[in-house]
């Protein structure tokens, strides 16, 4: 009998550990920001404006990554910015995941009119350009942390819905689902105890990816000044400010950009890594 056992090599856990390590650093920074940040992220000191990072000539001790044009410490702002990034990632990620996955499961398993309604809704939703949609939405409901999260959930649930629906459709064709029907399970029970465990690895990988996307969207909204109030440091806001002085002080732009990049990359890799590591079928 031909089967796939052993055909899938378990990949080295390096990406799981590296991405996990970076995310742990970001999480610690977010939780303990007031304790570990060397300076007040909002304190301006024009005498110390545009100090370069520590290895360049003219650097001041205590300002490791330099300061921006208002003399605020870049490192401290990065650390405090992790708070907003993580809150948005967690709340918006879980929100999109719950709504999108539930609708996707229902559409893929129950089919019929539920599927027709949900699928049409997804099609219509996806026809809007997402960022424009977010900007319009926030213009209507006002700026602020809650608005950013609501906007991400409202826009991105379709990503979960589509993928989870397709995977559920696949699984529903399998004989183990028919077998559950023969065993007399209710449809709800079949969906939750038979199909969901098989769709869960996909959901977890997608959730991690979605958290990364939420961080990007928040940064973009900060960049166009539609996110949180300006006195709260955010990575997107820092990038926007850094852009104005890129020729005089590149570090104000580059460090938040790198942080953002690493975080988004880590979220995506972490999800894939988890899937490889803990999926009993691939193992």
């Amino acid at each position: 009998m031909l089967d796939g056992r052993g055909a899938v090599k378990r990949r080295a856990g390096a990406r799981l550990w590296l991405s996990g390590l970076w995310l742990a650093i970001v999480a610690l920074a977010a939780v303990f920001a007031p304790l570990i940040a060397p300076h007040d992220p909002l304190m301006q000191d024009l005498l110390y404006g545009r100090l370069p990072p520590f290895w360049m000539a003219g650097a001041e001790p205590g300002y490791l990554l330099g300061t921006d044009s208002l003399g605020r410490d870049v490192l401290s702002r990065l650390i405090h910015g992790a708070r907003i990034a993580l809150i948005v990632a967690l709340v918006a990620g879980i929100g999109t995941c719950l709504i999108g996955s539930t609708l996707g499961l229902i559409a893929g398993y129950y089919r019929g009119w539920a599927d027709r309604i949900i699928s049409r809704l997804v099609d219509i939703w996806m026809a809007f350009p997402p960022i424009l949609f977010a900007i319009l939405l926030i213009a209507v409901i006002g700026t602020g942390l809650t608005s950013v999260i609501v906007a991400i959930v409202v826009i991105d649930w379709t990503r979960f819905c589509r993928v989870v629906r397709a995977e559920t459709l696949n699984q529903s064709q399998m004989d183990y689902v028919h077998s559950a029907r023969i065993a007399g399970f209710t449809r709800m029970k079949t969906m939750l105890s038979e199909i969901l465990p098989n769709v869960l690895p996909t959901i977890v990988a997608l959730l991690s990816l979605e958290m990364g996307i939420a961080v990007i969207v928040e940064a973009i909204l900060s960049f166009v000044n539609l996110s949180i109030s300006t006195d709260q440091p955010t990575w997107g806001g820092m990038i926007a400010e850094g852009r104005l002085s890129i020729h005089q002080a590149w570090w104000v732009l580059v460090f938040p950009l790198i942080t953002l990049f690493l975080t988004v990359l880590s979220f995506a890799q972490f999800g894939e890594g988890l899937k490889d590591r803990f999926d009993p079928v691939l193992r």
């Binding site: 089967d3 028919h178 023969i182 007399g184 038979e194 098989n198």
Partner: peptide, 20 residues
């Protein structure tokens, strides 16, 4: 009635839930 009428499937891979 389900309990009284059972089927043993032709394809044993697809008939067993891979995650249980």
């Amino acid at each position: 009635l389900r309990q009284r009428i059972q089927l043993i499937f032709q394809d044993p891979m697809s008939a067993l839930n891979p995650r249980l």
